[in-house]
Simulated assay, not measured.
Amino acid sequence: MDEYPAMSRVINSEVLLQHFGYWPNFHDAEVIKVTFEALPTWRSAVTFTINVFDMTNEVTKKGYFKLVKKCQIELQLTGIKELVFDYFSFQNVLFEL
């Protein structure tokens, strides 16, 4: 797990590691839903639903890179003190996470 330091802070991170065989960098993953919550414990939470995949070097007939190991994950951040949230639109592609 030392190879992937973020894993120690993510509950159930081993499921993602088993699915991909490595810890993904989320490059080109798409955020499709965001849920903001004000919890009764005076803590806030934001849950991101993200389409994640592995991009191969193969190209499809339409000229796109072939995607494999597709899955949808929910990543919840808690105890947020400050958040800037801009530009959420019809397509929300991540550079990395």
Results as ranks from 00 to 15, higher is better:
9 R>L: 09
40 P>T: 05
16 L>W: 02
9 R>S: 10
83 L>T: 06
2 D>A: 05
35 T>C: 07
81 K>N: 09
6 A>F: 12
75 L>C: 07
6 A>P: 01
21 G>H: 10
55 M>T: 15
16 L>E: 09
53 F>D: 12
77 L>N: 01
31 V>R: 09
46 V>W: 01
70 K>I: 05
85 F>T: 05
10 V>D: 02
86 D>E: 15
74 E>I: 02
70 K>R: 14
80 I>Q: 07
4 Y>C: 08
75 L>I: 06
31 V>Q: 08
73 I>Q: 06
8 S>I: 04
37 E>A: 10
27 H>P: 00
64 Y>A: 10
93 V>N: 14
21 G>V: 08
2 D>F: 01
65 F>P: 03
78 T>Y: 01
97 L>D: 12
4 Y>D: 05
1 M>L: 12
93 V>Q: 15
32 I>C: 05
4 Y>G: 00
41 T>V: 04
51 N>L: 08
13 S>R: 01
57 N>C: 07
3 E>M: 02
9 R>T: 04
12 N>V: 03
31 V>A: 11
17 L>P: 01
64 Y>V: 00
40 P>F: 06
8 S>M: 04
84 V>F: 11
72 Q>S: 13
26 F>S: 02
60 T>Q: 04
80 I>G: 01
78 T>W: 01
27 H>N: 09
42 W>E: 11
12 N>W: 00
87 Y>A: 11
84 V>H: 12
47 T>F: 00
32 I>A: 05
28 D>N: 11
42 W>H: 12
47 T>L: 04
67 L>K: 15
76 Q>S: 14
4 Y>W: 12
55 M>P: 01
15 V>W: 03
27 H>V: 00
38 A>C: 02
30 E>P: 00
45 A>M: 03
59 V>A: 07
96 E>H: 11
48 F>Y: 13
58 E>N: 13
69 K>W: 11
69 K>A: 11
19 H>Y: 06
22 Y>W: 11
64 Y>K: 14
53 F>I: 06
37 E>V: 06
55 M>V: 14
51 N>C: 06
40 P>S: 07
21 G>Q: 10
69 K>T: 09
87 Y>H: 13
26 F>P: 00
31 V>K: 05
17 L>S: 04
71 C>T: 15
97 L>W: 13
58 E>W: 00
45 A>S: 14
41 T>I: 04
3 E>H: 00
40 P>Q: 04
85 F>Q: 10
43 R>H: 09
66 K>H: 08
22 Y>C: 12
5 P>S: 01
16 L>Q: 07
91 Q>L: 12
24 P>A: 05
33 K>Q: 09
12 N>D: 14
32 I>L: 07
96 E>L: 08
7 M>W: 03
53 F>N: 12
57 N>W: 09
40 P>G: 05
74 E>S: 14
14 E>L: 02
88 F>P: 04
58 E>A: 13
84 V>Y: 13
78 T>N: 10
62 K>G: 10
80 I>L: 13
30 E>A: 07
94 L>N: 06
44 S>T: 15
